[in-house]
């Protein structure tokens, strides 16, 4: 399974980014092999619609789940439509979050958590 973790610096072992649509990087991880790659988020500085654009990027990258701090309503709606599952965390590195994902201890959300963050 392919999952994506938002990241400020594109690294596997430093703190993740709680921002979704406007994070600087996504760490795309294959949960079977633990292989990962870092991809710059093309929506990081989008004037509007960063959430949906980030989701389209993740969808094209084959991600089936996303892990971040919070989701705006637009991002969440788009994730749902794309069939990408949404998980949240307070803290952790992508590496730690992968372990928590595999252990089934990450919180999956079924509604937007970030209020009106989008535009």
């Amino acid at each position: 399974m392919i999952i994506a973790v938002s990241s400020p610096d594109g690294k596997f072992s430093t703190e993740f980014s709680p921002r979704f649509g406007r994070c600087n990087f996504f760490i795309i991880i294959d949960t079977d092999t633990r292989e990962w790659e870092s991809k710059p988020n093309p929506a990081a500085n989008a004037r509007g619609g960063a959430g949906p654009q980030a989701v389209q990027f993740l969808s094209a990258s084959g991600a089936e789940a996303a892990i971040t701090g919070r989701y705006g309503p637009n991002a969440f709606t788009t994730l749902k439509a794309a069939g990408i599952r949404a998980y949240i965390a307070d803290a952790g590195t992508p590496e730690e979050l992968l372990d928590r994902f595999l252990a089934g201890t990450l919180e999956e959300v079924n509604a937007a958590t970030g209020g009106e963050l989008h535009h």
């Binding site: 509007g48 949906p52 788009t78 439509a81």
Partner: peptide
């Protein structure tokens, strides 16, 4: 203007765009 996105067979409208 990226105001309509079709993803997973659904059509989403983002009025602010």
């Amino acid at each position: 203007f990226h105001a309509i996105v079709v993803i997973g067979g659904q059509t989403l409208v983002f009025p602010e765009m």
